[in-house]
C-alpha cells in the first residue's frame, strides 16, 4: 500500500448551536485552526467541551451552524476521504470481522473477491487473520478496536479522525494500541486529528495539542509538542511531557471541578 496523499484542513470560524430539552446549547463558538498535511493534532479538553461535535463536523456527519471546513484543494470535501474512528460500537455486530473491515472497500465499489483478499491480507499483517470469521461479540474490546482502525486504514484516507478511540479499554491494552497507532501513522502518513480527554496521551501522540474548553466550546491554547519522532512509550518520562501535562491540567482544572460541582 502506498502512503495516501494527506490533506491540509482549515477550520474557519466554526460555530455550532443546537436546541436541547434544557434550552439552547452553545457547543462550539468560533473555532479556528489550520492543520498541515501529514500533521498529527490532538485535541484535548474536559468532557462536554464540544470536541466530539467538532470531529463530527470535520467528518461531515453534522453541519455547523456557521463557518466552514475547507481542505487543501479549496473544496468542501470532494475528493477528500475521511475515516472516523469512534469510541466503541464502531463495528456492526451482525457482520464478521472480515465483512466489517472490508466495509469501507465495499462502499468504494471494490469487488467482493478482491476486497476480501485485500482485507484478509491486512488482517494477517495485524495478527488478526485467524479471527476474520468471528463476530465482534466474540472478540475482546481491544481486538475490536484494532479491527475498527484496520477498516479505516484500508480505505487509505487522506484524513483520519479519531474520537477517544481507546477510552473504553483497560490501561495496558491502551498502551499497546497507542504504540501501534504511532507505527501505523508513520507507515501511512495521513493527516490525523485525535480527540482525547487524556492529557498525557495527547502530548505523546500529537505534533501539536489543541487545548479546548467548554461552554461554549472553543480552542483556548495551542501547544507545539517538542518531542522527536519516532516516539515510544518511554517518552512519557521526558521532562517536557511532565511539564506540559501540568500546564494543560491547570488550564482545564477549573472547568472539570465546576462540572463536578467540586468547590475550592
Amino acid at each position: 500500500m502506498n502512503p495516501p496523499h494527506s490533506t491540509e484542513i482549515y477550520a474557519d470560524h466554526i460555530t455550532k448551536h443546537y436546541q436541547s430539552h434544557n434550552g439552547q446549547v452553545y457547543a462550539l463558538e468560533n473555532v479556528n485552526f489550520k492543520i498541515s498535511a501529514g500533521e498529527i493534532v490532538c485535541i484535548v479538553g474536559p468532557s462536554g467541551c464540544g470536541k466530539s461535535t467538532l470531529l463530527k463536523i470535520l467528518a461531515g456527519l453534522i453541519e455547523p451552524t456557521s463557518g466552514q471546513v475547507r481542505f487543501s484543494n479549496g473544496s468542501n470535501d470532494s475528493g477528500i476521504r475521511t475515516a472516523l474512528i469512534f469510541q466503541e460500537h464502531g463495528l456492526f455486530p451482525w457482520m464478521t470481522i472480515l465483512d466489517n473491515v472490508a466495509f469501507g472497500l465495499e462502499n468504494l465499489g471494490v469487488g467482493k473477491i478482491e476486497r476480501q483478499q485485500k482485507t484478509q491480507t491486512f488482517l494477517e499483517q495485524l495478527g488478526l487473520g485467524e479471527f476474520s470469521h468471528y463476530y465482534p461479540s466474540e472478540l475482546s474490546g481491544g481486538m475490536r478496536q484494532r479491527a475498527v482502525i484496520a477498516r479505516a486504514v484500508l480505505v487509505e484516507p487522506n484524513l483520519l479522525l479519531m474520537d477517544e478511540p481507546f477510552s473504553g479499554l483497560d490501561a495496558q491494552s491502551k498502551l499497546v494500541l497507542q504504540e501501534e497507532m504511532l507505527h501505523i501513522w508513520k507507515t501511512f502518513q495521513q493527516t490525523v486529528i485525535y480527540v482525547t480527554h487524556e492529557i498525557e496521551e495527547a502530548i505523546l501522540l500529537g505534533d501539536r495539542v489543541l487545548l479546548m474548553t467548554g461552554r461554549p466550546g472553543s480552542i483556548k491554547e495551542e501547544i507545539e509538542v517538542l518531542l522527536d519522532r519516532p516516539r515510544d512509550l518511554r517518552d512519557r518520562d521526558q521532562p517536557f511531557v511532565r511539564e506540559t501535562k501540568w500546564h494543560i491540567w491547570k488550564a482545564i482544572e477549573g472547568q472539570v471541578r465546576q462540572s463536578l460541582h467540586v468547590s475550592g
Binding site: A59, E106, N107
Partner: peptide, 20 residues
C-alpha cells in the same frame, strides 16, 4: 453510530438498507 459509520464510509441508501 451504525448510521454514522455507514455515512462516514459514504454508503449508498441501498447499502444502508442492506447492511445496516
Amino acid at each position: 453510530i451504525h448510521f454514522d459509520v455507514a455515512k462516514n464510509y459514504q454508503a449508498s441508501s441501498m447499502k444502508v438498507f442492506q447492511r445496516v
